Simulated assay, not measured.
Amino acid sequence: MIPQAPPEFRSGFIGIIGRPNVGKSTLMNQLVGQKVAITSPVAQTTRNRLQGILTTKDAQLIFVDTPGIHKPHHQLGEVLVQNAKIAIESVDVVLFVVDVTTTCGAGDRYVADLLSRSSTPVILGLNKIDEQPPNLLEINESYTKLADSQQWQTVKFSAKTGVGLPELQQLLIQNLEPGPYYYPPDLVTDQPERFIMGELIREQILLLTREEIPHSVAISIDQVQETPTITRVMATIHVERDSQKGILIGKGGSMLKAIGSAAREQIQKLIAGKVYLELFVKVQPKWRQSRIRLAELGYRVEE
Results as ranks from 00 to 15, higher is better:
129 I>N: 04
285 P>A: 01
11 S>T: 03
15 G>N: 00
167 E>V: 15
186 D>V: 10
235 A>D: 02
80 L>K: 02
37 A>K: 01
16 I>N: 01
123 I>N: 05
275 V>R: 08
72 P>Y: 07
208 L>A: 06
121 P>R: 06
117 R>L: 05
214 P>V: 12
282 K>T: 12
284 Q>R: 15
82 Q>M: 03
236 T>Q: 04
76 L>M: 13
128 K>Y: 11
74 H>I: 08
275 V>M: 10
227 T>S: 15
25 S>V: 03
100 V>M: 13
126 L>S: 12
193 E>N: 08
242 D>N: 13
185 P>C: 09
203 E>M: 03
61 L>E: 09
192 P>M: 08
283 V>S: 03
241 R>E: 11
169 Q>S: 14
211 E>A: 13
286 K>T: 01
145 K>V: 11
252 G>N: 07
94 V>F: 02
187 L>M: 15
109 R>C: 11
176 L>E: 08
11 S>G: 01
103 T>E: 14
95 L>E: 01
21 N>E: 00
150 Q>V: 09
145 K>A: 12
15 G>S: 07
92 D>C: 07
204 Q>P: 01
32 V>D: 05
190 D>C: 02
48 N>D: 01
24 K>S: 07
202 R>V: 06
126 L>W: 11
167 E>P: 03
196 I>L: 15
70 H>A: 06
63 F>G: 12
60 Q>F: 09
37 A>D: 06
16 I>M: 04
138 E>F: 02
183 Y>T: 06
3 P>I: 14
243 S>T: 12
68 G>H: 13
294 L>V: 11
247 I>F: 03
11 S>V: 03
74 H>Y: 09
35 K>Q: 10
